[in-house]
Design a binder for these strands. Structure first.
Length: 426
RNA sequence: GGAGGGAUGGGUGAGUGGCUGAAACCACAUGUUUGCUAAACAUGCGUACUUAGAAAUGGGUACCGGGGGUUCGAAUCCCCCUCCCUCCGCCA
């Protein structure tokens, strides 16, 4: 959620930045927000004046009663009834205005950073760089769902039986490989200075609002209705919400957290070839990294987080590329996002394995996540960032496909000690 | 799931209708004193909105888990909700 004060003092700039999203104009909504805020202010100050008067009268009445002048007190009481009527009215108006204002604010996405390329969809994303080895496979190379079946690594049918589509069952070396990847990712994050967290997998409504999944995108999350709890779509939600309603000290920066969790996504309405095998799941595993930093550091930190993920892909010996998302492809809460994709040689396409974003104050404004410094006398909103480091399924898909031979699958060097085996054979 | 108790500022905790934005203590910050550290003393120390001001700072309003009610006036009384604790039940 953007700050009204920011919208007010930088109206033109915010509008310009929002225009980078290019799918719609937010000008009218921004103007509406300013209008509502004006209304809010004037109602507020009229109300405050009346309340000040009431408080004053109440004080006088108290004194009069104490000194036994009940008659005079009763006279004053009469005066208060009128004020009370008016203040009740104003309170109602104020509540309505604040509700409308909030509703408008919830509809405005984050303002993209000025360096974000304009564009309407993923074809306009900017390839920043590519890396990793070049992989060429024979014509007989198999996609990962066939490999998973041949080497008994993942049983998709069994998942359907137990739960439904999109809930794979990992078996044998498939399961061990999952565990190896999780440990590898967590160790690398620890090495990089992130504190490891095991958070709850279900969160309450306030947490969903804090990171921006609610109120609009509840369709994306599984909801345990009886207890009104949501299954997390990413560890970002519980990890970032650790700092909801927190005022940090400057000295606490940078806050660096990582956590492995399963992630649950309803992903309604996706069918067909793009979602075969591991490409799109309702439940998958992911290690997430989160940072909370001072505003002036956040874009440096974003680059560092990208570098961290890039290093993971290099160590896994996967062909990858770094994309800078264009305005049209940018997530609702993000000011700038890099996507990391790995090349799946058998499917002959790029698979998104990580998304690393700077949310600036968009999340922290909702979270009321602030900090105090030596030269900030009032608390200031911190910047939040997060990224996948990494999401497992598509990494697994690329690993299986790119490293296949006629007789088996060779693991990259780095994973061998984690997995306890070098190759997967029949 | 059943019965009872509770929720106050960074922490402990006082406060049962007006003089309480809230005592006291601890923590923290600054200053004084003292070879250093420590101790002692002094002062300061919540958040949001708003208003005046260039700023320093001052004024107003709201906030004592959340929402609603009673009252001229609520941290204090009433109702609902949430969370925590104790006991019982169930259970990895």
């Amino acid at each position: 959620m953007l700050e009204v004060s920011n919208i007010r003092s930088n109206t033109a700039e915010i509008k310009n930045r929002l225009a980078r999203r290019s799918n719609a104009s937010y000008d009218a909504l921004i103007d509406q927000i300013l209008k509502l805020d004006d209304a809010r202010k004037s109602t507020q100050s009229e109300l405050d004046e009346i309340l000040a008067k009431s408080n004053q009268l109440a004080g006088q009445i108290g004194v009069l009663y104490k000194s036994g002048k009940a008659d005079e007190a009763n006279d004053l009481k009469k005066q208060t009834s009128e004020l009370k009527e008016r203040s009740t009215e104003l309170k109602e108006t104020l509540q309505a205005t604040e509700r409308d204002l909030k509703e408008c604010l919830y509809q405005v996405p984050n303002a993209p950073h000025t360096s974000v390329p304009k564009g309407s969809n993923e074809t306009d994303n900017e390839v920043v760089r590519e890396g990793g080895p070049e992989v060429t496979l024979s014509e007989t190379a198999l996609p990962h769902w066939d490999l998973a079946d041949r080497y008994k690594l993942i049983d998709f049918e069994l998942g359907v039986k137990i739960t439904g589509a999109g809930f794979p069952v990992y078996t044998g070396k498939g399961a061990k490989l999952q565990r190896a990847l999780i440990n590898f990712f967590l160790n690398e994050a620890t090495e990089a200075g992130y504190q490891e967290i095991i958070p709850p997998l279900l969160v309450n409504e306030a947490s969903g609002i804090g990171t921006g999944q609610l109120p609009d995108k509840e369709g994306q999350m599984y909801h345990a209705a009886k207890d009104d709890l949501y299954l997390i779509p990413t560890a970002e939600v519980p990890l970032t919400n650790i700092y909801r309603d927190v005022i940090l000290d400057e000295k606490d920066f940078p806050v660096m957290l990582c956590g492995y969790t399963p992630c649950f996504r309803r992903e309604a309405g996706s069918y067909g070839k793009d979602v075969r095998g591991l490409n799109r799941l309702h439940q998958f595993d992911k290690v997430e990294i989160v940072q909370i930093v001072e505003p002036e550091d956040s874009y440096n930190v974003l680059e560092k987080m990208v570098a961290h993920v890039e290093e993971l892909l290099q160590k896994l010996e996967l062909p990858y590329r770094v994309l800078k998302l264009c305005g049209g492809d940018l997530g609702f809460a993000s000011a700038m996002t890099y996507d990391m994709e790995v090349y799946s040689a058998a499917q002959k396409k790029w698979l998104e394995v990580s998304s690393i974003s700077n949310f600036e104050t968009f999340q922290s404004n909702r979270l009321k996540l602030r900090y105090k410094g030596a030269d900030t006398k009032k608390p200031v909103l911190a910047h939040t960032l997060n990224g996948s480091a990494l999401a497992l399924p598509r990494i697994l898909a690329a690993l299986l496909e790119n490293n296949q031979t006629e007789t088996g699958i060779n693991l990259p060097e780095i994973l061998v000690p984690y997995a306890g085996f070098k190759t997967i054979e029949k």
